[in-house]
Design a protein around this nucleic acid. Structure first.
Lengths: 336, 336
DNA sequence: CTGTTAGCGCTTTCAG
DNA sequence: CTGAAAGCGCTAACAG
């Protein structure tokens, strides 16, 4: 509210002078008001608004060793799957004064290490990664950093530090078990080729007990690829009864292709997706799928980082958020 | 590769000592190799890998006044619409060494100013906002900052600084014109209530020349709300012929509801969306929609910031990326 | 091509 | 409760 042009941004030094106190008192008035008298705080506050002062977190972080940033690594930003997690991360961290530094690690691990270095050069106070950190070099580097790390959207018995996720193998088994319990015998798989999707397939096949026809596409899977995947599956088994798809968008594509070929869902073909995307409940027929609380993963991961940074003890460094299969019309039991 | 535990991260000081050169020479060897001899560079490189040194950009930025970060403000992260833009921003900036600081401004403007202050406290080298900056206080603050600002996904004649977008009014007019050219008379609108969507409605109505039945929902619109919106429109006009929807997901919901009511698309009801989401071409019937190159918006916005930071002159500070209507089955001409 | 001298803006010591 | 000194890790400016 003071000047018209750009006469250099006000620093804490200016605020202190304006308020007639020392630099450090101004600093304390703003960041540790408990140590300063009411009256001084008032005067500093006044000086702040008169000068238009906005703190420089970069400078503060240099000395205090706290950048108030958290790095977040996702395979690709445009995959809807992780959106609720990224959103919850952003919001939970923001509420605690942290800024998320979002980075794309890609689906191959080569970029992971490079991105990690880029991130580390900004000295984040914590790191959240999507999936497990597999590369030994990256694991070692993360451990040596000495900052809280949360691996998400998966579980293992070798956490780098903390974990918030669920078992993909169990999801696969549960879906297979569900299909079998409905009496479907001729099963199929349409899946992306990323690690987590493949783990679900592994669980699926283990529960079924034998190989099944499958269409494997490069991650990320999409509606378009779903249409083509059904074509591939029908070639392998024209009488296929139920298909598990590695994502809801993928499943949606399969269903559209099925309809355009005159196949009725679920009478001629049952379909189960993964992720419970926002459209899953509202397409016609509605889609049976495995629901994951992605927002909860983001909230918990953020909170673990925040608590660790605050020095609080972590009661549960590995959290299984579980999943549940939501039965909808695409697998409704019907007389054939 | 040197130690097993955490003996404090190596600094440039350590590298310089290890390489047997001065601090500043080590600095230059890494960031301005042109000023240093081959041999010295080699020695510094060796010292870097032996010490496991990772630069501290926070410290460098403090002196050089370049944080190598760019703030990006979107209404909400989970709206698919802006994903390609955010992704292109991330990638283009990353390639130039910049980190995107993503923030959610929400659909109401109250958070915009607060978020802006949070962002400014991290001293970004540039700011990209989605939509126009409306609040006078925020506009003034941005101008005073003296860093490049790009407003995106819209155009106006009062840019804060630079702009990359298109005219929402023209999109609305174009869609209305398209409907009219097909001979549809009884038109309808299903729209979210955000500023840009309302501008499209304005253009639509101006082209039609009179009011039309409309269903307005709180932004962001969704598939679920689309189903309900059709119900509302049919109550207002049971013989409605063509509906413009403010997003593709929204339009998809309308189409699903139409089908479940036995309405054929496009014979009984034509539908046009907005955004050309990835599924638009692949649902059945495929969806006519206005295509916007969101990735291009992100790339251009990032490049403007990068160029400005590099001191390059900007040939065109306001870029109209345009749009085009993609005609698909949902508006196919048919004998009724 | 290399080095020395000053800080960037703030917070952590340690004294009053 | 307040202050003075020191320095976080790095780079810009000037000297050699």
């Amino acid at each position: 509210m003071s000047h018209g042009s750009t006469p250099k941004a006000a620093t804490l030094h200016d605020v202190a002078r304006e308020a007639g106190v020392s630099l450090i008192t101004a600093s304390r008035a703003l960041s540790k008001p408990a140590l300063v008298s009411e009256k001084t705080i008032e005067r500093v506050r006044g000086a702040v608004s008169r000068t238009g002062y906005i703190p420089n977190l970069l400078a503060g972080g240099l000395k205090s060793k706290r950048s108030m940033t958290v790095a977040g690594l996702v395979p690709v930003i445009s995959v809807p799957q992780f959106l609720p997690t990224v959103r919850a991360l952003t919001e939970t961290l923001d509420a605690a004064g942290y800024q998320l530094l979002l980075g794309q690690s890609g689906y191959d691990h080569s970029r992971e290490e490079k991105l990690l270095n880029t991130m580390i050069s900004r000295r984040p106070d914590g790191i959240v990664v999507t999936g497990l950190v597999h590369s030994p070099a990256a694991r070692e580097q993360l451990q040596r950093l000495g900052i809280p790390v949360v691996e998400t959207w998966d579980l293992s018995d070798r956490p780098v530090d903390m974990m918030v996720g669920f078992s993909h193998v169990k999801v696969g088994s549960a879906i297979a078990g569900f299909f079998l319990s409905r009496g479907w015998q001729r099963l199929g798989i349409a899946t992306g080729d990323d690690h987590r999707a493949m783990m679900r397939c592994q669980g699926f096949l283990a529960a079924v007990g034998h190989e099944v026809p499958s269409a494997i596409v490069p991650a990320p899977s999409s509606l378009e690829r779903g249409r083509r995947a059904l074509v591939e599956l029908l070639e392998k088994d024209p009488h296929i009864e139920a298909v598990y798809c590695s994502s809801d968008g993928f499943a949606h594509g399969l269903m559209i292709e099925a309809r355009s070929r005159g196949l009725r869902i679920p009478q001629d073909l049952a379909v189960c997706g993964f992720g419970d995307a926002d459209f899953a409940a509202h397409i016609d027929p509605s889609l049976t799928t495995a629901h994951i609380d992605g927002a909860e993963i983001g909230r918990l991961a953020a909170q673990l980082i925040i608590d660790r940074c605050a020095g609080k003890p972590i009661a549960q460094p590995i959290v299984d958020v579980g999943f549940r299969i939501i039965e909808r019309q695409s697998t409704a039991a019907t007389a054939k």
